[in-house]
Amino acid sequence: MRRSHTSQYYEPVPQQYDGDVLEQENEQMASQLKDKIHVLKSLSIDIGQEVRYQDKLLRDIDEDFERTGGFLGNTMNRVLRLAKGGHNYYMLYLFLFSMFVFFVLYIVIKFR
């Protein structure tokens, strides 16, 4: 992409200007440039701080997911061991308990 070599502050210098006026304009433009550089520096420092903060948050989330994944894996292994055991009546007991709870809730809601 081509850049235009003109900026919003650029004005062609007429030939009748003397050296003092040019020097003042040069100092003014240098001070404007210094101000812009200062603003960009503070902005880049703020961006760096934000990046470090976001990186810390992402690392914490990653650690939480790893812990949760390990916990879930252990729980699934326990459930599989329980399912492979000789006591297959656990599902029947769970179903009967669920039906009992729903029946009690139905009665409470109906006679309320």
Rank of each mutant, 00 (worst) to 15 (best):
G48E: 10
G48V: 02
G48C: 03
Q49N: 12
Q49R: 12
Q49W: 06
E50A: 01
V51F: 07
R52D: 10
D55K: 11
K56M: 07
K56P: 00
L58M: 12
L58F: 09
L58W: 12
R59F: 07
R59C: 06
R59D: 08
D60A: 03
D60E: 12
I61T: 08
I61L: 06
D62V: 00
D62K: 06
D62F: 04
E63V: 00
E63Y: 02
E63W: 01
E63S: 02
D64K: 07
D64R: 09
D64N: 04
D64H: 05
F65S: 11
F65E: 13
F65M: 14
F65Q: 11
E66D: 13
E66N: 14
R67G: 02
R67A: 08
T68M: 15
T68I: 14
F71W: 13
L72N: 02
G73E: 10
G73P: 00
G73S: 11
N74S: 05
N74V: 00
N74I: 00
T75E: 05
T75D: 02
T75W: 11
T75Y: 12
T75M: 09
T75P: 00
M76R: 05
M76S: 05
M76Y: 13
N77H: 03
R78L: 06
R78I: 12
R78K: 07
V79R: 07
V79G: 01
L80I: 11
L80N: 08
L80E: 09
L80K: 09
L80Q: 08
R81F: 10
R81C: 06
R81L: 09
L82P: 02
A83W: 04
A83L: 15
K84H: 09
K84T: 09
G85E: 03
G86T: 05
G86N: 09
G86C: 04
H87T: 07
H87G: 07
H87S: 12
N88S: 14
N88G: 14
N88K: 14
Y89S: 15
Y89T: 15
Y89H: 15
Y90P: 00
Y90D: 05
L92N: 11
L92R: 11
Y93P: 01
Y93D: 11
Y93S: 12
Y93R: 14
L94T: 15
L94F: 11
L94H: 12
L94K: 11
F95R: 14
F95P: 02
F95T: 14
F95C: 11
L96G: 03
L96A: 05
F97C: 05
F97H: 10
F97P: 00
F97A: 08
S98Y: 03
S98H: 04
M99Q: 06
M99D: 02
M99P: 01
F100V: 11
F100P: 00
F100Y: 07
F100N: 10
F100I: 15
V101R: 01
F102L: 09
F102V: 03
F102Q: 10
F103W: 12
F103A: 07
F103T: 13
F103V: 10
V104M: 12
L105R: 02
L105D: 03
Y106V: 00
Y106C: 06
Y106L: 07
Y106P: 00
